[in-house]
């Protein structure tokens, strides 16, 4: 019997569980609304390393090994590491993976990478190919800034539609054994392009892809937005999530109070990030801290986690191409046994 429902959605019948999770964030994120939820907050953005690129790797390494510890496992019990980041040739994740000496799948979905790696990891676990799979992503403000934008010391103004790349990493361990909130569905997104070419307005570029994936998800699973306690997009930011709400309403779906956006949630309004956070570290750190914690507490029982990514490079921008977006969604359902112990 097929495990595919509808057009783009797969169902995980064995319900892979998140048995360990960990989040690391930078100093600025540590001053935000979730400061009490993150597992570790860096005191300096270099994390004791010589360059920001090395700091990004160290954050990932720390998140991965701590999440394995939280799952009460040994690194030898891990069958696969799935992950990615924003740097060219996803060097941060693959360079981190060489320390672990375990099989590794590097994936790239820009800022949607956390949802993508959870979908890929859950598939391996659900199909009983692997027992324990680690899904991890991370980004660093300073490495993304120099790769995609300008040198840090250049005295220019960020436009009001821009977002702030989150310094942070998150890691989840998936397994069929033990207790934990389970991943029940994954909806894999299509690449959509609505002709936005302003690199400082990623939210608008990614909102149509979030709309496409969310609508497919609701149709495939025959659910409505009201069936979820929380529908959370990756990093559309304030403007992007307003656009998404308009787009969804236009298509007959009303996103109400149960809708939020990781980019919008991670910073306070007075932190001068304009539209909020972005980067794979944004949705990864929010999921692995605030969202899973609130699920432990029983505040959220069923969460639709839809991370969005803008699939651009500096080269495509310079050649005048528009920005394609993608969005992958996974459904996480609460394990009633968690939190009672």
């Amino acid at each position: 019997m097929s495990n595919k429902v509808g057009e783009q959605t797969i169902i995980f019948k064995n319900k892979p569980k998140i048995i360990g999770n960990f989040s690391v964030v930078g100093e600025k994120e540590g001053h935000g609304p979730f400061k009490d939820y993150f597992h570790h907050i860096l005191e300096d953005d270099l994390f004791g390393e010589s360059s920001f690129e090395h700091a990004e790797r160290k954050m990932l390494e720390y998140a991965i090994s701590s999440s394995i510890e939280k799952a009460k496992l040994n690194i030898n019990k891990i069958d696969l590491i799935v992950g990615g980041d924003l740097l060219n040739q996803i060097i941060s994740t693959s360079f981190t993976a060489r320390h672990f000496d375990r099989p590794f799948l590097g994936i790239y979905g820009a800022c949607s990478t956390m949802a993508e790696s959870l979908a890929v990891g859950a598939t391996f676990v659900d199909g009983e190919y692997f027992k324990n799979v680690v899904c991890a992503t991370g980004t660093h403000f300073s490495t993304a800034e120099r790769q995609y934008r300008f040198p840090l010391e250049l005295g220019n103004q960020r436009p009001p539609t821009s977002q702030w790349t989150v310094t942070g990493a998150g890691s989840s361990v998936l397994s069929l054994n033990s207790n934990g909130h389970s991943i029940t569905y994954a909806t894999l997104g299509k690449v959509t392009d609505y002709g936005i070419n302003d690199v400082n307005n990623m939210g608008a570029a990614m909102a149509p892809s979030a709309m496409s994936t969310l609508i497919s998800h609701f149709q495939d699973t025959k659910t409505t937005p009201d069936d979820y306690d929380l529908i959370v997009t990756g990093d559309l930011g304030k403007l992007g999530s307003e656009i998404l709400m308009d787009l969804m309403e236009h298509n007959g779906y009303k996103l109400g109070k149960n809708y939020n956006d990781c980019g919008q949630m991670i910073f306070n309004n007075n932190q001068k990030t304009f539209q909020g956070g972005s980067g794979c570290g944004c949705s990864a750190s929010v999921l692995n801290s605030y969202i899973l914690k609130k699920m432990d507490e029983g505040v959220f029982k069923k969460v639709l986690f839809a991370a969005t990514g803008a699939l651009l490079s500096t080269l495509s921008t310079q050649q005048g191409d528009t920005i394609p977006g993608i969005c992958h969604a996974v459904v996480i359902e609460r394990d009633e046994r968690v939190g009672r112990k």
Partner: peptide, 12 residues
């Protein structure tokens, strides 16, 4: 796409 761009411009 043009429609979307005009709409986005109005939302900024």
């Amino acid at each position: 796409n043009e429609q979307y761009n005009i709409y986005v411009e109005s939302k900024i």
